[in-house]
Design a binder for these strands. Structure first.
Lengths: 182, 182
DNA sequence: ACCGTAGCTGACCGATCGGTCAGGGGATCT
DNA sequence: AGATCCCCTGACCGATCGGTCAGCTACGGT
């Protein structure tokens, strides 16, 4: 085995991301990750405090990105907010599609996870923007439908090139929301 | 403890359905179910061959219903198929919303489960009908978005009365698909 | 040459998992 | 009363889980 500084840590994260997305967090054991990363289970726990620490490191970037985006949304008014929310959410979902899959795969447990504690607030603000600041049942149901639809579509392995996927998701989401497309 | 013929079996199924939906299949142990159903773990395994058998019994009705519905869709042409697919799928998703949550929570493993072996074919036919028999990327992405959006929305605990929920989901799905609403 | 440290490992641990098994208790039959 | 069957249970089992620990190896600084 070659000896670069420590590519091991990065490799562990990559393998864990792939395995978590494929078999879920609970469905992936430290042994599985170790085999995939060509190292021992003990080596994982040298680089990371525990299984949860690996998950935390994987989910921190998307969680912070979503949180930041939802903050920016607050400064926009109705129509601008809807379009910004749709394009922003679709972009984030595509960039972090594996992480999205992990989160949605075990939602209840994930929302109890400290690193995702900011998610409910962020999602609430996102839903508020998607629904055009309306409290109507229709707006809330549609916001939920867009959030879920985009996430599931991005997480599924649909054989479509990313550009088309992004465009269709944005247009589809705007249609779902009943938002006039420019 | 009272002694009716065997309400135990039904009670086990009810508790398992609730717990699987709340914590996932892998996240629920036989012990958890036993505690919830006020019986011993051994009693579960007297009534059912194993943990998988409980899941099978829970998921068989929705799997068969979806399969049957997708068959009926094949007899319809474009526009009729789209509307029938949307209303049929929304209806099934709402009726079996807990089962939908279980399936979507651990999709990869679930699709490997024998009782759900019919699902990919059924979903493919459903997607085909939702997409208006088109092979365009747009149609496939939108079909996926509707299937995921409806499922996630139904599985989430949105505080909306069922009638409104059903109506909004149908209208929202039709808008997503770009289908003219009557 | 010596040593400290970073990277990594095999062996092991307690907890929990799904599942097995011999047997108890209470109805219902003969 | 005895036999039989259905429900149900406590005790137990092997496998696997996440995690610990003492110690090995190789390299850089002195």
């Amino acid at each position: 085995m070659p000896r670069p500084p420590s590519a091991m840590r990065r490799q562990i994260l990559d393998c864990a991301l792939r395995l978590f997305a494929e078999h879920g967090f609970k469905g992936t054991s430290l042994h599985d990750i170790a085999v995939e990363a060509h190292c021992s289970k003990a080596s994982l726990l040298y680089h990371f405090a525990g299984k949860d620490a690996i998950l935390t490191e994987l989910l921190t970037p998307p969680a912070e990105s979503l949180s930041a985006m939802s903050e920016e949304l607050a400064a926009l008014n109705g129509d601008q907010a809807v379009e910004a929310a749709v394009t922003g959410y679709v972009g984030l979902a595509m960039r972090y599609h594996l992480e999205v899959k992990i989160i949605f795969a075990e939602l209840p447990d994930m929302l109890g996870h400290p690193v995702l504690a900011v998610i409910p607030r962020a999602v609430a603000r996102l839903a508020d923007a998607l629904g055009g600041r309306s409290a109507e049942p229709r707006a809330r149901v549609m916001a939920q439908m867009v959030i879920g639809g985009v996430a599931v579509t991005v997480a599924a392995d649909v054989d479509v090139d990313p550009g088309t996927m992004r465009n269709e998701l944005v247009q589809g989401a705007l249609r779902t929301l009943g938002h006039p497309t420019g």
